[in-house]
Structure formats: C-alpha cells, structure tokens
C-alpha cells in the first residue's frame, strides 16, 4: 500500500466510518420502529395472537419451519399458511389447522415426521390466530406465490 496513505488515516476511516454508519443505522431504526405498527396491523395484535407467538416459541416451531422465510428449511413456510390452506377463510383455516395438529405424527415410514405437541383447543385457537395475524403483515409482497 502507498506510503502516503498512513495508519492514522486508516484508523480515522475505521472510527469515523463505523460511528457514522452506526448512528445512521440507529436513525433508520427509529423510523422503522415508527412504521412497523401500521405494517403489521398492531391494532389486531390481540392477547390470543401474543399467546400464539409464545406457543410458537415454546414448541420451537422455527426449528423445522420458516416464518417469513426465516428459520429452518425442513418443513414448509408458515407465514402464508393461512392463505395456502385456509383460502383466506378464518373458520375453514381453524378447522383445518386443528385437525392437522391432532393427526401428527403421521407415522408414514421414511417420511418427515412432525411431533405431537398435545395442544389444548384454546392453544390451537391461539396458534391459528397468530398464523392468521402473521399472514397479514406487509412483507413487500413476499412470498412470490402461495407455496411459500
């Protein structure tokens, strides 16, 4: 590297650049945090939805599934499962979801198995509410199609 470019200059770029972009990032974060309530419909974030998120975490669903594309890639995306399986009908989706959860594991030899989580009716309803709410988040039009 050129002799005219000194260590001091490199250090200043590091401190100055690092600091500047961290501050910019924090500024953008403030703006994002202000925008999120509308994009996720926070007015519809009920106690049931919150309970559903808690159950989602407690049973480590993200260890196999993805949600808005994040998580494991061993099982289908669930951010849009309400649209895929419920066709946008809440009652139909809840019926489908409850029956699905109770039928697990399928026990089909050699196929991927989902454990039986023994959720109560009330818990199944909360999980379904969480997935319905999640499907309505403004994700900049992702996923590209209903298969997720």
């Amino acid at each position: 590297m050129s002799e005219r470019f000194t260590k001091g200059m490199a250090r200043n770029i590091y401190y100055g650049g690092g600091m500047f972009f961290m501050l910019l990032f924090i500024g953008l974060t403030v703006d994002t945090v202000t925008a999120i309530p509308e994009r996720e419909n926070r007015d519809q974030l009920t106690a049931e939805v919150a309970h559903g998120k808690h159950l989602w975490e407690k049973n480590n669903c993200v260890g196999c599934h993805s949600l808005m594309g994040e998580g494991a890639y061993f099982a289908p995306e669930l951010g849009n499962v309400f649209d895929r399986r419920g066709m946008g009908n809440e009652a139909a989706f809840k019926a489908y979801f409850g029956a699905w959860m109770k039928a697990m594991p399928t026990g089909v030899e050699g196929r991927r198995q989902m454990p039986q989580f023994n959720l109560s009716e009330e818990e199944l309803n909360a999980m379904a509410e969480f997935l319905i709410w999640s499907s309505r988040i403004d994700t900049n039009d992702w996923p590209p199609n209903k298969e997720g």
Partner: peptide
Amino acid sequence: ILGTGHHYFFIGA
C-alpha cells in the same frame, strides 16, 4: 452495519 438491511426485505420492515 447498514448491510443488516438485507435481512429486512421481507419481514415487515
């Protein structure tokens, strides 16, 4: 730092 943004495309941000 701002590259973090590549994770913010489709999660509601």
